[in-house]
């Protein structure tokens, strides 16, 4: 079965960022296809590579990156939500004339259309939020 997962909240503040990861991992382990994970609202904060938790805590961002590398997952960050919250990739940095970018490996920034398109193509939408 084809899934699209929507993540609405940032890491560490809400368990929902963890729940979405656990669910995605379980769906893949169950042999399902995860077409896309779409990060919306504060969920875009799951995609900053500057995340630096203490050593005894999980790294929520690199955990997503690793899962993406392993399963060729499409991790999409909503562009409008990302710009508001300071999540940029290299080309956006140049275009917006900023001095840094922070998008983590395995993530890409794109429009809300990616969520709608994913929902149309998928069999199930599962939303994780607060």
């Amino acid at each position: 079965m084809k899934f699209i997962i929507q993540v609405n909240e940032g890491p560490y503040q809400h368990q929902t960022a963890d729940s979405a990861y656990q669910f995605t991992r379980a769906a893949l382990a169950r042999g399902h296809e995860v077409l896309r994970v779409f990060f919306y609202h504060d969920g875009v904060n799951n995609g900053t590579r500057l995340t630096s938790p203490p050593q005894d805590d999980r790294n929520i961002v690199s955990r997503w990156s690793a899962l993406a590398a392993e399963h060729e997952l499409d991790l999409v960050i909503c562009v409008a939500a990302a710009h508001r919250r300071g999540i940029l990739d290299e080309s956006e940095m140049k275009r917006l004339d900023k001095d840094a970018y922070n998008l983590a490996p395995g993530f890409r920034i794109s429009g809300l259309g990616q969520l709608i398109e994913g929902v149309v193509l998928a069999d199930r939408l599962v939303v994780f939020g607060d």
């Binding site: 609202h41 809300l112 969520l115 709608i116």
Partner: peptide, 19 residues
Amino acid sequence: TCYALEAIDMVLIGSAFDQ
């Protein structure tokens, strides 16, 4: 919270995709 605003954005995009 931001949810009302972001729902509006999503309605407009959904409409652009003819849903």
